[in-house]
Nucleic acid binder design. Structure first.
Lengths: 106, 106
DNA sequence: CCTTTACACAACTGATTGGTTGTGCAAGGC
DNA sequence: GCCTTGCACAACCAATCAGTTGTGTAAAGG
């Protein structure tokens, strides 16, 4: 994944409230109303946070009578997971080579 | 991990340049000078990005003559990885239950 | 010593962010 | 038809951010 796309996803998660919302949505869908109370925010604030998450592709919305429940898009999270694991692997490979080098020397 | 700590880490990665710097550091340590050219930034800009990454614990600096090379702190990345995987697991468990439910019905 | 190298700190600027209040609107219940 | 519910859009505000230029400084080389 390119740096820009990834940064956009990270930007959406660069806020404690949104991180908490994502954690909440992992346990089940929720409406704006349902998120308003626990997070002590106005309905508008929650609505905006969900919009940011939706624009980053971390969340999808659907219509259900007057309500518009939000669903977590786990695919997006997995993309981050994949990227991080790739970096971790590069890092680990480098450190393995270093250890091997030191082993040969000693 | 709490939402706030995690958001701080995500904030550091909420910029394409810093994501690219992290990717670069995964392949080996680098000085400010070495990062300036490929990213077409001033020395000061790179220095600031590294400071943000360091404050988030994603990078450490060390002194080496006049230079101050930056090292990736893979531990921090692993913390993100762990958190995301936990959310993914919750989400998956929920969807398994739903599938089971539908299977029983059908 | 004096210069060069590699870097950090400070002040400034324009853009973005997270929050607010105010308002509008579509879907149901009565 | 009217009221309530659930939500989104718009305007505004203070704070933060990413970048710039300008300047200071510690370490190494001549």
């Amino acid at each position: 994944m390119e740096a820009e796309t990834l940064a956009r996803t990270f930007t959406a998660l660069a806020d404690p409230t949104r991180v908490a919302i994502v954690a909440r949505l992992a346990t089940g869908d929720a409406t704006v109303k349902e998120l308003t109370e626990p997070f002590e925010l106005t309905q508008q604030a929650v609505s905006r946070h969900l919009k940011v998450l939706a624009e980053a592709g971390l969340v999808t919305r659907r219509q259900e009578a007057q309500a518009r429940p939000a669903s977590l898009e786990v695919e997006r999270l997995v993309e981050i997971l994949t990227w991080i694991d790739a970096r971790r692997a590069e890092w680990a490979a480098r450190h393995d080579r270093l250890a091997e080098h030191l082993r040969r020397l000693g």
